[in-house]
Amino acid sequence: MSKYHYYLELLIVLISKELKIRYKSTVFGYLWSVASPLAFALTFYVVFSHAMRIDMESYLVFLLSGMFPWQYFNNSVNQSPGVFLGNANLIKKVTFPRIMLALAMIGNNAIHFLFALPVLFAFLWGNDVDFHWSNIPWILVLFLNQSLIVLGTVLFVGTSNLFFRDMENLTQVCMNLLFYATPVIYPVKSLPEQYAVVLNLNPMMQVTELWHELFLKNQVDFGLLSSSFLYNLAICVVGYCWYRKMEKRFAEVV
């Protein structure tokens, strides 16, 4: 049995463990992963299109097409402080690559994200947005592109939290701020030019723009995709290096 075959087995077992736990303790397991982004989007829809009177064509589908990917990022990062800490007993006992724990958690969220997409399609088609089947492979590309940030951030936060235990609070605060700095509830165009440089530091900015273009306009801007990819790759590498540097000490500090 090769090492990589074993890692795959381990990953499958860890992901199905997470899924089992999730589905055991909740009656509406799958529904929640759809209901929570929907509820968010509907709230913003009601507030902005009725109370604040934002006038934007198909605002609801605009919200949804940014909200589902955001939730994948948000859920993974919010769980990341506990990804190693919460598995202290495993880390102290057995010597599997610890990154498997992060991959399993992300995999679990990724599955929920991908399985929630049909709901998004239903909304798109129900609102006369003509999203093409032929663009489904692009969903995979954008998903993998986004997963780089997810992995990098999860590794960074998960590792750091073993050494600085208040990463959990810090993460929550940062994610709240980041949400408003990401064009999920407003279009990028509406941002003032002079802030563009600062706001572009947010890697979810370009990612969200890519999702909007794909879902709403059937377009992929290659320039945007490649710059987003390079940025995300850099984040992933930084997170991974930090994790690798500290990995040997995990069992001492959990």
């Binding site: 087995e9 089992k20 303790s25």
Partner: peptide
Amino acid sequence: AGFHSDLTGRENILVNGVL
């Protein structure tokens, strides 16, 4: 170590064995 309390003994055997 390595057992999850929400899973059954049988399910934990699988996870633990693979670990």
